[in-house]
């Protein structure tokens, strides 16, 4: 009896420690994702501010957005993966990179983070920087450009989000498991490119929560639905296609050039 009691007492601390460790990791993921999204929205949207007093340009804000992504991924990439985007989270779930419970938690964290990030912006800048002559709907609110129909807008958001999700899927590809150092730079420049490409037409949101933050704070909801439909559908479609058609099986060993020699050999055999 006394021996049994001692055993049970000894095992308890370990079990508690393990459980706490697991819980701590899950909590860190959630708050990491929340903080990452807040940082991203705050820096990126501040970089979009344009008034007669604070000059700006489409090019500068596009580049700022991409570099904001770089910062967020560099800070929290190893904590939570720094998805920052429900479309990426959806793609990760369908790709098999995360489970659905975690996916839902990420979504909540991203929505909350976007609201907090934009709220910080509203708190620290003067009122006419948020809404003014240059930004009647509010700074960083994504809107359709004149001349672009709603259907074209959805299609543009869909296609550019396809490109973004393909970048994410290739990063998760087993063959790229050892090539992770410069992921923040690659993602950052990718987002810069996509915003420079399509920013003038639809705002190049590619991210429902990124559009949600400014929309809630400024009560600007024109065509808001296309920034949910386009990206999420693209996230689902692209991840499934990439998974079935392009996903690699094994990690390529780069320690020697044998891998390359083998590849050449196989090609020649063909």
């Amino acid at each position: 009896m006394s021996q049994q009691k001692q055993k049970s007492q000894e095992s308890n601390p370990n079990a508690r420690w393990r459980l706490e460790g697991h819980q701590r990791s899950a909590i860190a993921c959630f708050f990491g994702e929340l903080a990452a999204t807040a940082v991203f929205v705050f820096i990126a949207c501040m970089g979009c501010v344009e008034t007669p007093l604070f000059q700006n340009s489409h090019f500068r804000s596009g580049l700022t957005f991409g570099l904001a992504i770089l910062i967020a991924i560099q800070c929290f990439g190893s904590v939570s993966g720094a998805h920052l985007n429900p479309a990426i989270t959806l793609a990760a779930w369908l790709y098999g990179a995360i489970g659905w419970i975690r996916a839902i938690a990420y979504f909540v964290a991203q929505a909350a983070g976007a609201l907090i990030g934009y709220g910080l912006l509203v708190a620290v800048l003067p009122g006419n920087s948020i809404k003014g002559v240059d930004n009647p709907s509010g700074v960083c609110v994504t809107i359709l450009a004149p001349g672009i129909s709603v259907l074209q807008g959805v299609f543009i958001e869909f296609l550019i989000t396809c490109c973004l999700v393909m970048v994410a899927c290739s990063v998760w590809d087993p063959r790229n498991a050892k090539l992770q150092d410069s992921v923040p730079v690659r993602f950052g420049l990718t987002v810069s490119c996509l915003i420079l490409t399509a920013g003038l037409f639809t705002g190049a949101s590619m991210n429902p929560t990124r559009s949600l933050g400014p929309a809630v704070w400024n009560d600007s909801w024109a065509h808001h639905w296309i920034y949910w439909v386009g990206p999420l559908v693209a996230g689902a479609v692209t991840s499934l296609i990439y998974r079935m058609a392009f996903k690699g099986d094994e990690e390529i060993d780069l320690r020697t050039s044998d891998a390359k020699i083998r590849m050449i050999g196989e090609v020649i055999v063909q």
Binding site: S57, H58, F59, A145, P146, G147, C163, M166, V167, C169, S170, V171, D173, R175, N176, R186, L189, T190, S192, C193, L194, L196, T197, L200, F201, F246, G248, I252
Partner: peptide
């Protein structure tokens, strides 16, 4: 007249596009 641009922006954009394509399909 509606969509502003510059040689610098479009040239840099092209470079970034190549980055995306190589990242997505370089290992494929």
């Amino acid at each position: 007249s509606v969509f502003t641009n510059s040689d610098f922006q479009s040239a840099l954009n092209f470079g970034f596009v190549v980055l995306i394509c190589i990242q997505c399909f370089g290992c494929v």
